[in-house]
């Protein structure tokens, strides 16, 4: 793959005209396959950065590229399609729909992204088998086979289902927002190992956002959002 998986250039964002700048990034990029740890305390513009990458928010100035496509320059439905096709998300908690089975939860992105559906279908045994393979890799093969409900799983197990879902259909970018903050230290390390192993296999870029710097071992690069966000500094001082 040529170029960057993610690239933000000259991005300035404020919630509405006249409001103070929330995010002001000169340059921020991640190469394909890169494992990037973005460190950011609250108020550093983390949530805004994620919303920009997801195409939920649009910057007033600058470029937000996901695999070469500028989200600010494509129509809304295309932005939704890019998010569905190219990005797997893992959030802090409550990632799963309680009324779907584990496998159905994992296959959820395939409902909205024909691209990921096609890739999952192309796996040996088809999409269902691919979901089960990912779940088994996450140590949840038995739980999935036993038809366990989401509510019966521990938080750590739920996060691993979320990881499997982010990985299904091999999206080029995995964005994880504090996925381990609800886990204990051992579970955190195990979760990261699994995530890296799977992302490494599909060649996905991992953008891991956390306020906890102790987790940065194993990443190719660590970026402090507060340092590169010229808007956050001002706000941080004010707060």
């Amino acid at each position: 793959m040529n170029g960057n998986a993610i690239r933000l250039s000259g991005v300035r964002f404020r919630w509405r005209t006249g409001a103070p700048l929330v995010l002001d990034l000169a340059e921020f990029a991640a190469r394909p396959g890169e494992r990037l740890f973005v460190h950011g305390p609250s108020g550093s513009g983390k949530t805004t950065l994620l919303n920009l990458l997801a195409g939920i928010c649009l910057p007033q100035e600058g470029v937000v590229e996901i695999v070469g496509e500028d989200l600010a320059r494509v129509p809304g439905p295309r932005r939704d399609a890019i998010r569905a096709d190219c990005i797997g998300f893992i959030f802090q908690m409550f990632n799963l729909l309680p009324f779907l089975s584990l496998t159905e939860n994992v296959l959820l992105p395939c409902r909205f992204s024909p691209v990921r559906r096609a890739r999952a279908d192309a796996a040996p045994g088809g999409a269902e088998a691919e979901a089960l393979r990912l779940l088994a890799h996450m140590g949840l093969g038995e739980a999935a086979a036993a038809g366990r409900a989401v509510a019966e799983l521990s938080t750590g197990q739920q996060q691993r289902v979320a990881a499997a879902r982010a990985l299904i259909g091999a999206p080029p970018v995995i964005i994880a927002d504090e996925p381990t903050s609800a886990l204990d230290a051992d579970a955190q390390a195990a979760f990261l190992d699994l995530l890296f192993a799977e992302a490494g296999q599909s060649g996905a870029t991992v953008l891991f956002v956390s306020h906890d710097r102790r987790l940065d071992a194993g990443f190719d690069r660590v970026v402090a959002l507060a340092e590169i966000n010229r808007a956050a500094g001002a706000e941080g001082r004010a707060a």
Partner: peptide, 16 residues
């Protein structure tokens, strides 16, 4: 809202 947000994150459009 959580359910809607999850669906959005996996690629659902507001129209969905």
């Amino acid at each position: 809202r959580r359910e809607m947000a999850i669906l959005r994150s996996v690629g659902a459009r507001p129209l969905h």
